[in-house]
Every structure is written in C-alpha cells, then in structure tokens.
Nucleic acid binder design. Sequence first.
DNA 1: CAGGTCTCCTGCTAGC
DNA 2: TGCTAGCAGGAGACCT
Length: 270
Amino acid sequence: MPELPEVETVKEVLKEQILNQKILDVNVNYPNIIERPTVDEFIKKIKGQTITDIKRRGKWLLFELNDYYLLSHLRMEGKYYIKNSDDEITRHQHVIFKFKDFELRYNDTRKFGRMYLLDKKGVYDIKPLNELGYEPWDENLKSSYLKEKYKNKKLPIKTVLLDQSIMVGIGNIYADEILYLSKINPYKQSSCLNDEELNNIIKYTKMVLEKAIKLGGTTIKSYTSSEGVHGRFQNELLVHTKETCPHCHKKIVKVKINGRGTYYCDNCQK
DNA sequence: CAGGTCTCCTGCTAGC
DNA sequence: TGCTAGCAGGAGACCT
C-alpha cells in the first residue's frame, strides 16, 4: 500500500519518463476515480496540457500542467504503467493518458484511488491539499507542535499517527515501525506522551521514511511503483508482519486498532 | 467538535 | 476439489 516513500518513488520514476510530454487525449474507463471536476470537464481541460513538473505532498502526487494541477492519490493499490498504445488494456486500467509515442495508464485493482484536476492558482488553499499537516522534514514539526495537536485527543497513538492533518505520509506499515523504534505501545493515548516520546516519534518517522525512500519503498503483496520497479524496504521491516521481536525475541502481538492490523512487541513497547 | 462506524472495491484465503 | 463468507485498508461521509 503506497505510503509516502512509495509515492516519492513513483514521482521519481515518472519524472524520468513523462516530463515535458504533452497529453493528447485521455480515456476514463471508471468515472469514480475522478473526484473533481466532472469527467467531461476533466477530459476537456486536460487535453493539450504539458506535464511541466511532478511533485509530492504527503501521499498525493502532483502533476504540474500548464494551467492546472492533476492531483492523484494512489490509496491502496494505485499504480502507473507506461504502455504502448497497441498494448492490451487490462481490466484494472481505469484512466489512460495518451502521449505521442506511448500511454500512461493508471491501474487500480480496488478502485480506491482518486484524481482532482484543479486550477493552478491557490491549489494549496483548497481541498484536498489544504487539510494536510506538516511533511516529516518540515522545520516547524517539533515536539511542541505534536504536543499541542495531541493534547486533546483520547485516541491511541497508532490511530493519531495516521491522521494526515497533523503530519503527512505515515500509513499503517510505517506507523507500526515508528512506534516499535520509539518503544511506544500503540494503544497509548496520544495526550499522555512526554517530550522524549514525541521527539522519538519525529526522529524515527524521518529515519524510517528516509530509509524506505532510499530503498524504493515497501513491496507487500501488490505494490510496485511502476511496472517492474519493486521496493526493497519490506526486507527491513522490524515488527510489521513479523512473528518475533528482533530485540527481545518474544512473540509479536497482532491486534486491531481502529480497524487496522497492528503489530507490536508488548515487552519492548510501553 | 471529537470520535465511532460505514462505505468504497477486489483478490485472496480459511473453512467447510 | 470447489464454493463462499469474511477480511484487508486510506480516507471521506455520515451519525451520535
């Protein structure tokens, strides 16, 4: 499932392949992927636009066009494939961007991914980008900020780490890894964390995500950044999907917190 | 307003 | 062996 490192990897791979290419046409085979505007307007507006840059904000991919931003969230299983126009269109290829010599195809088995085509001006001031918290490397992300954001929450820290309006980029897998390295029990209420624990969360969030980016993300089940590109971070996981704790060798506990599969060591994480 | 629950989807798998 | 019910999960909608 694409989290920040996977999206960063996709961004870098696509930059090599589609920068400065003009979108000649687009086919939308599954309309629900397009959140805004209407599919007809989406197609009309995007035709003739050139991709001038590709950026990332949280788990969102931002394709910068001449007049618009195309925002794309991969959610669980979204992937981009570069294909020839005569390649067979398979059942999960829902949005097809046509270029002069090739096609960019958005593939999404579960159809959870979403796209927005928004005016360039003020794109960061409206939904969905205006609701996002700090990037993990933002200099404003300090323990005092987290303390303020966490103080009134009665939810377990595992749940709060996934809240993209506080800090972006963390998904279910990395949340488990960050809490394991921080030696914090995922059930602990976010309001009860002390300064040292908050600083550890910031430190290990950056460390885990940086390492995952270097390794091209995590491949569990179906994720690939682009066809044929597989991440290697899954080899580095310490607790998520693991049986025993690499530190104390006790059995890893698997529970559900807020409906999310959660792995932790109840000996090491207090 | 915060928090709980439902919803969207399909592939996979445990269980019969 | 073949079928099906149930599960997985990011994030927004909706309800309390």
